[in-house]
């Protein structure tokens, strides 16, 4: 599935709502459930809980549903993108590292964000290693 994103022609932020789900790989029942849960959470993105849930969920997933991109990536991206630009302290960046990693992937593959509006991501910023609990 890593070749899918290279062939995908990126969508502008304004067109996200109109993208048919059929543009993406088919999802299993479990992946569909993950997708709709993530979209629901993203509607309450200002809640600290929603944010930390999303970050936890993306810890072991490259995309929202796991290894394949879906429309949920676009819908959640739309909501998260603006919030993410507020994270500037190392502490915030560290706490939201998985969301930031995912935002950077989406803004450079699925969604066409003008260079000047992209979230600035310092790829090599040092953050403490996460130790599994």
């Amino acid at each position: 599935m890593s070749d899918f994103i290279e062939k995908f022609s990126s969508i502008s932020l304004n067109d996200i709502k109109n993208v048919p789900e059929s543009d993406f790989p088919e999802l299993t029942a479990e992946e569909k459930a993950l997708a709709s849960q993530a979209v629901t959470y993203s509607n309450r993105i200002e809640d600290a809980d929603s944010i930390s849930n999303l970050n936890d969920s993306l810890r072991n997933k490259t995309f929202i549903v796991g290894n394949k991109p879906s429309k949920a990536d676009l819908l959640v991206f739309e909501k998260v993108f603006k919030v993410a630009s507020k994270w500037s302290s190392v502490e915030d960046v560290s706490k939201h590292r998985h969301i930031i990693r995912w935002v950077d992937l989406i803004q450079n593959t699925l969604v066409n964000v003008p260079e000047s509006e992209k979230l600035k991501v310092s790829l090599d910023i040092e953050v403490p290693r996460e130790i599994k609990e």
């Binding site: 890593s2 990693r101 995912w102 992937l105 090599d124 910023i125 290693r129």
Partner: peptide
């Protein structure tokens, strides 16, 4: 592995946003 893990904190691929020879 710790270094590799740190490299992947903010990256989905080894380089850029695509699968390269490095991956």
């Amino acid at each position: 592995l710790e270094k590799l893990d740190a490299h992947l904190n903010f990256r989905s691929f080894m380089l850029f946003h695509k699968c390269t020879v490095a991956d």
